[in-house]
């Protein structure tokens, strides 16, 4: 098994609702061209969309990164703040601090992080208030 990586990175700006979903759409498109199986594809689709939207809604801006090896897709969401004070709470279903604006657009059910965790084979979140949040999600590719 080679651990050759394909890396793809997207800047996601805070409040960029106009282009919401573009980064995850591009990731999905590439995974289809790379021949990733349908089941894995769908799991990555859901998680990358949720991660992208969280960067837009909750962060001060960051990156959505896809790293692929022949066996695994890694999704990394990395932002420059504001950080999550209580990760345990943020991971609870239904917990949300989404703004009025985001709620008007249909976000803020507090399901994003739980869905990311559920869809990923491994999920790791590190956050520091005032510094930023990094989420790493791994998805095993079926072959």
């Amino acid at each position: 098994m080679s651990d050759k990586l394909f890396v793809d990175s997207y800047d996601v700006a805070s409040g960029a609702f106009q282009t919401a979903g573009d980064a995850s759409a591009s990731i999905k498109r590439k995974l289809k061209q790379l021949g990733v199986d349908a089941v894995t594809l769908r799991r990555v689709a859901v998680a990358s969309y949720e991660a992208e939207l969280n960067l837009i809604i909750h962060s001060n801006g960051g990156n959505l990164i896809m790293e692929m090896s022949p066996d695994e897709v890694m999704l990394i969401s990395k932002d420059v703040g504001p950080g999550i004070p209580d990760i345990g709470k943020a991971l609870e279903e239904g917990y949300s601090t989404a703004s009025e604006e985001a709620r008007d657009l249909g976000f803020g059910a507090g399901m994003g992080l739980p869905n990311m965790k559920r869809n990923a084979d491994h999920f790791d979140i590190v956050s520091e208030v005032g510094v930023g949040t990094t989420i790493r999600m791994g998805f095993a590719i079926k072959r």
Partner: peptide
């Protein structure tokens, strides 16, 4: 069944190589 015509290659490693080239 899926139509895999969008795939760059049937072999995933080769597809990754082609994707890199494409980028």
């Amino acid at each position: 069944l899926p139509n895999s015509v969008m795939r760059l290659d049937d072999d995933i490693v080769e597809a990754m190589r082609k994707m890199e080239q494409m980028e």
